[in-house]
Design a protein around this nucleic acid. Structure first.
Lengths: 321, 321
DNA sequence: AAGAAAATGATTGACGTCTTTCATTTGCCG
DNA sequence: CGGCAAATGAAAGACGTCAATCATTTTCTT
């Protein structure tokens, strides 16, 4: 009934505990035929190492470092909070997370580090150390894994939503980027272009994720072209978009934007925007920690693609979620 | 640096390990002032019981029973598979899941049971025992918790999607239920009615989650009323819907249905249906196990509401997910 | 103040794995 | 066959908690 222990394996293989241990943990100095007998016994009994006992014995604790851009930038503050929550929730699992904002020099004193949505600039310094680093939110070459959404697919999804909303009518969708320099944003735009086609997609404007610039530039664009029937806000700064929609009233374009924040949530509830594509920061962070744990355990996990959530007014999660 | 142990707590409180243990585990026979000093020390040191060590010591293993309707009913076979996968994945966490199909008599020999989408009939027998039971997929009164989606919200979301797809035009949406006797289905229909209004919502037809009946009854309804512009398939049996849409070609109605299955996936990819609302069986099962674990640990977790995923052709997860 | 009851301390052996140390056996080589 | 290296076995002490036992001290009763 009880799960077999390594002692059971040793007995079944007809070797001593020591030898079974040497095989299991690859300590070497074991004859080939013993290795095979132990392996066989492990298979036969369906033995699985009791990780909790193992970690207890090793008094292993996972020490992670998380680099998250500073500021209460809406989205990244959600990421930051998610790290704090997760660190709290996993304290019993011997996982500790050290939140850092500056990224001066390679991470030290930790088993694995995670870098959330930073630019490419200082990455080299991070990789330089012998601490493995994974990417969160924004994929970056040279890191051990990427945890985040497929931005191309997100853009396609936004395109599909606009197509559905324009059934039969000619769409004229204005993409609003944070910056064309960001790969995430370019990917989303490219995804939308795949679905909508050039004739429906206007040239993008760039607002640097800034609400004020959003208000100014988008407001200007809307006045300049009254034929705009849709908006795809690719980055942040949506706080500046909401009042513009309020001013337009019934004739506002169909709006799809990213990230569920208090502002976008209110926008949905007030019928000022139509769809929010959310990358579920809490889930991303949880996945990131799993991946980091696996890396720290010596496994080589692949990247994890989060399927973004699509929110309308009607399926907003409660405040607790 | 190291996390404090109960020994540290005892030392800080100026009592013996035994007393600290008696306080921590509520064994009684401790003077009030000792209790307070231990509590204080726990707070001061930020002590948290090392659950892995505790479980190791108790040689606790969680034994769960899962009642899933038999048959390869598409959705429930996914649930079944998810239980198997999770059981496999959590074998190292001392969690074992016993999959049962019939529900004869109360569950025995387990710490908690989960009942997936069964009718109300035999529940009383299940509750009769002293094993706590939680509900999966279908909420049922009298059980300890419900893990599943908010069906009302799902119906509203489907309604919203139809509204978006009908912008400007009058919608005539035909709801296709499995059975009006199922609470889940009634809730979904009610949710859609909230959004669409009576003039856009046709009287529902019932196909008993059966592909053949779906084909017959829905085919008949579509021929009888060529003005149908939308379909909301609330239950299962969508395999019978796909060929009907293929026959209608370009003029097919806008289709929203539930559950991502091989058939509905193919339907999306072939542009024969438009939206799939999925309740993410794997995630539901994982949540259910977490809840059951918490219950077995003596906590009293609340119900968990899963936010369903919305899939278009463009954001289908890869086969691996 | 004696005796009973309550509270506390001290100790021990699990749980399953890790890790190290030391002794013993086996195989191989010349 | 002696000698040396490789392979194996045996044992023990962690890791932090649980759970039980027994001895001792404190507190309360009458």
């Amino acid at each position: 009934m009880r799960n077999p222990t390594l002692h059971d394996v040793a007995r079944a293989a007809g070797v001593s505990y020591s030898t079974a241990d040497r095989v299991l943990n690859g300590r070497g100095g074991v004859a080939m035929k013993s290795i095979q007998r132990v392996r066989q016994a492990i298979d036969d009994l369906g033995y699985r190492r009791d990780i909790t006992a193992a970690n207890l014995s090793r008094r292993r604790s996972y020490r992670f470092a998380a680099y998250v851009p500073p500021g209460d930038h809406g989205f990244f503050s959600a990421i930051r909070r998610a790290f704090q929550d997760q660190a709290e929730a996993r304290a019993g699992q011997r996982i500790s997370v050290d939140l850092r904002d500056g990224l001066d020099g390679p991470p030290a004193d930790c088993d694995c580090a995670v870098l959330a949505g930073a630019g490419q600039d200082r990455i080299d310094a991070l990789i330089a150390g012998d601490v493995p680093v994974v990417a969160l939110v924004t994929d970056m070459p040279g890191l051990r894994a990427y945890i985040g959404i497929d931005n191309l697919a997100a853009g396609r999804t936004a395109g599909r939503l606009h197509r559905i909303a324009h059934r039969g009518r000619q769409a004229r969708v204005l993409p609003v980027m944070g910056s064309a320099g960001l790969r995430d944003h370019r990917d989303r735009l490219a995804g939308m272009a795949e679905i909508l086609g050039a004739e429906s997609l206007l040239p993008p404007i760039e607002v640097q994720d800034n609400p004020d610039r959003m208000r100014d530039l988008l407001g200007h664009a809307l006045r300049a072209d009254p034929g705009i029937t849709g908006i795809y806000s690719i980055g942040a700064g949506n706080r500046g978009l909401i009042p513009l929609m309020r001013d337009m009233g019934e004739n506002r374009p169909f709006v799809v934007l990213h990230e569920l924040t208090p502002h976008s949530r209110a926008g949905l509830l007030d019928d000022l925007i139509d769809v929010v594509i959310d990358q579920k920061p809490a889930e991303e962070v949880a996945c990131a920690l799993e991946v980091m744990k696996a890396i720290a355990d010596g496994e080589t996990p692949g990247s994890v693609t989060i399927t973004p959530a699509i929110f309308f007014k009607e399926n907003l999660p409660g405040v607790s979620a």
